[in-house]
Design a protein around this nucleic acid. Structure first.
Lengths: 257, 257
DNA sequence: CGATACATTGAGGTTTATCAATTTGTGTGG
DNA sequence: CCACACAAATTGATAAACCTCAATGTATCG
């Protein structure tokens, strides 16, 4: 029933997570981090974590706060330890494309060279580990697993973006929303979240900007998916998967029978 | 005027390139490769190239030949040395999304884990260097620059796919075609091709499948761009940029004045 | 030179966007 | 804790962009 819990309850959970991470038990605070096993940090042994801890700075962002803007010099890269961040690109007339949502354990700044190639804003309250690029490069040089892990991350991000291209180029609004719900559901699991009542931390506008649709179309499509008894919107930011198979078929581009 | 040359002339050029690469001067045939400086191979010194040469196999694909299918076990990765390859994903009803065109110097298989996440087919005749993944991993372990270079490639591929998401999610048909022409024009330069009469090795269907459009819309949009005096279709597979600034503005999402 | 695939153009339909009004949710201060 | 103000979501009517189907024209290759 975690999906039905109130917003204050969610806030409390976030606060506990952050505290646990700051206390630390085994020498380095990193050892006690909530995302220790999912993040790139898992490439390092417990006794190597000190190196990581020495070069990182923790930071907290309020919802809607800007982390960086496209085109800025990319001096830092980030590891999300809690909350949700959105990455996006803008066209001069304001059209927006959200290129990804980043959750606890995700690494931000992989695709960036000298300057950030997209902007980043907090969707919810966000906790981050911040690394100077130069220092992290040094660490990657020292611990080769870390470098391998970064390449692995980049590979899997590439796989995700290819799926997103298929979605944006060829899927209908219904298929896009279905794919989106499944993606959120799947990504919640490694971070310790529930996979069935799915938590939707982002606004309808953000969802539209991620799926190449308008808010209105997103809203209408939620309604149609409820009529089809595929999902059910429990609360403002929570949604239950009612018929998993139908949802999967929709997302994969099969016609519903 | 290279863009106006006949198809047989193009074939001849391709054949010469392949021969030059096979002859080799400085010990390793790789040293004489046409893509020596642009490909990942540039991470290795001339005297390290022997290691690369020892583990690669050269291969030639006819136009439209299948290199691999999505879902296949990814035993090999590839370096394109000549020609054009398309990567794509399919939906069960046949909808296709081309996720990328690969040209001389491009590395294929970066995004793949155990199985290929997309299919690959030759657009033109294609020349490849093929590597067993396990052997290449060994080489990457021995020569660290190689590993770094792979990460760099992955980074720049990620940047490209983010731009493609903006295109697919938010750009109009005209803006998509304009962006496409500029991309082809820019990518032709490092490979030694001409940047102005732009060579279009792929069919209108392929272009549509890359840009999330139908062939008909692609064709109509070419016509409109010609009426606007932005481009001019010289021959079947060649196109001149008439007004570079207009083209750039269109691609970037500015309104034409 | 003819057969076949590919590109172009037209007519009409569908999906999604746009504009507008209303309802619902959220956060704040009394 | 409730009332208010503001932002977000929903729903409807209409329009635009692109797709589909169909016909014609034009390369390409044996």
């Amino acid at each position: 029933m975690s999906g039905l819990k109130s917003i204050p309850a969610q806030r409390a959970r976030r606060a506990r997570t952050v505290n646990a991470q700051l206390q630390g038990r085994a020498g380095s605070p990193c050892a006690a981090c909530a995302v220790r096993q999912v993040a790139v940090c898992s490439a390092l042994d417990d006794d190597e974590l000190g190196d990581l801890d020495a070069i990182l700075q923790r930071r907290q962002l309020a919802a809607n706060a800007v982390l960086f803007d496209e085109g800025e010099v990319a001096t830092q890269v980030y590891n999300v330890t809690d909350g949700c961040l959105k990455l996006f690109k803008l066209l001069p007339d304001g059209r927006k494309q959200v290129t990804g949502f980043m959750f606890a354990g995700d690494f931000v700044g992989l695709a960036d060279s000298e300057t950030y190639i997209c902007s980043a804003e907090a969707v919810t309250e966000v906790a981050l580990c911040c690394f100077d690029r130069s220092k992290l490069d040094g660490l990657a040089h020292k611990h080769r697993n870390f470098e391998k892990r970064l390449l692995g991350r980049a590979r899997s991000e590439l796989a995700d973006t290819q799926n997103q291209m298929l979605l944006l180029g060829r899927k209908s609004a219904e298929e896009r929303l279905a794919s989106f719900v499944l993606m959120l559901s799947e990504r919640a699991v490694p971070g310790g979240g529930a996979d069935n009542p799915v938590n939707l931390p982002m606004s309808g506008k953000d969802i539209g900007d991620y799926l190449g649709l308008t808010t209105e179309t997103v809203s209408r499509t939620w309604s149609r998916l409820q009529t089809l008894k595929v999902i059910k919107k429990d609360a403002a930011r929570s949604l239950s998967i009612v018929d998993f198979e139908k949802l999967q078929n929709l997302a994969d581009g099969f016609k519903l029978i």
